[in-house]
């Protein structure tokens, strides 16, 4: 049906051209560059002059021999991502199942409520959580004290675990609506007859969930888990803006913040780039899994 004129053959490239140009200049080339920077001792001087200053893999050597990486940054990044993804997906799924069982009115109410949680920008959300947990006047401490559960105000931001517990709350609160909405849409696509048939067979809600819903929504779950993993690996503002999060509390560093404070605080752009490359590689690994899941049943 399609007419094979030169225009037709060129058309895909004409359509793709503008987007490709933008991607190439602002994503691909920078990606190459961050790798090039990571092989240099790249400081203010080099940025100003543009002269390269190659030092091979020394930056990577420094990162891998830095105890900060092994004792603080990596556990914070990976541990947090694992926990956050687990909580986000579990909560999101629960909410989706709950919403599916509600009548139209309440489903709209709950749906709007989680939209509000989702819509709160990361920066404002972070400040709200900081305010809630503020040591001197935050409502959390005041409530605990009013209930007699603690005598003195506690500063929740100084301890590594409570610090990340607050980040977790923040990230899960912001992240679960996406999961819930996506899974809900998938749930509603599951043929009702299948569920009814299972109920007739006497399968309880729990078994119906694992036997029918999970297998049917395998791909939805895969997508949701992988996207959440990627997002939760690169939390930045939620950590950076917290009290002590921008470097003075060393136990709270994660890969993203570490890279940023080393580059822009210490002017060690090469070292910071090397950390960034590391983060990219970890995420690339996850992406490979994503791509393979996506490609299995659907040819591109």
């Amino acid at each position: 049906m399609q007419r094979r004129s030169p225009l037709t053959r060129l058309r895909p490239w004409l359509l793709l051209g503008p987007a490709l140009a933008v991607l190439a200049v602002l994503l691909l080339w920078p990606l190459v560059r961050v790798f090039l920077f990571s092989l240099q001792d790249y400081g203010l001087r080099e940025i100003v002059s543009g002269e390269p200053n190659w030092i091979g893999l020394a930056n990577y050597g420094e990162i891998f021999t830095d105890p900060t990486l092994w004792t603080v940054v990596l556990p914070n990044t990976v541990g947090f991502a694992v926990l956050a993804v687990a909580c986000t997906v579990a909560l999101g799924t629960g909410v989706a199942v709950l919403m599916a069982s509600l009548g139209p009115l309440w489903r709209t109410v709950v749906g709007s409520a989680i939209m509000i949680a989702w819509a709160m920008p990361a920066v404002t959300g972070t400040y709200v959580w900081i305010w809630i947990f503020d040591a001197d006047r935050g409502i959390f401490n005041e409530t605990l004290q009013a209930l007699g559960l603690q005598d003195e105000p506690v500063n929740w931001f100084t301890n590594r675990y409570t610090f990340y517990a607050i980040v977790l709350l923040n990230v899960v609160h912001h992240g679960f609506p996406f999961v819930a909405i996506t899974i809900l849409a998938g749930l509603l696509g599951v043929p009702k007859e299948m569920l009814e048939a299972a109920e007739m067979d006497g399968a309880g809600a729990w078994r119906r969930f694992w036997r029918i819903i999970v297998p049917n929504l395998k791909q939805v779950f895969a997508v949701v888990i992988i996207l959440s993993t990627i997002w939760d690996f690169k939390v930045f503002a939620q950590v950076y803006l917290m009290p002590g999060g921008s470097g003075s509390n060393r136990e709270a560093l994660n890969l993203g913040v570490w890279s940023y404070v080393e580059s822009f605080g210490q002017n060690r752009y090469g070292f910071g780039s090397a950390i960034a490359v590391l983060l990219t590689l970890v995420l690339l690994g996850i992406t490979v899994v994503y791509v393979r899941t996506m490609l299995k049943e659907d040819e591109l």
Binding site: L23, V25, L26, L27, L28, W29, P30, L31, R33, V34, F37, I47, I230, F233, K234, F236, L255, G256, S259, Y260, S263, Y269, G272, S273, A276, V277, L279, T280, L283, L284, I286, T287, Y290, V291, M294
Partner: peptide
């Protein structure tokens, strides 16, 4: 594939080169 991969790149990794760019 490239579009997919690029989507996964952490913003923090791009801050330095994009700043220079």
């Amino acid at each position: 594939l490239m579009i997919l991969v690029v989507q996964m790149v952490p913003l923090e990794a791009l801050v330095i080169p994009l700043f220079v760019q």
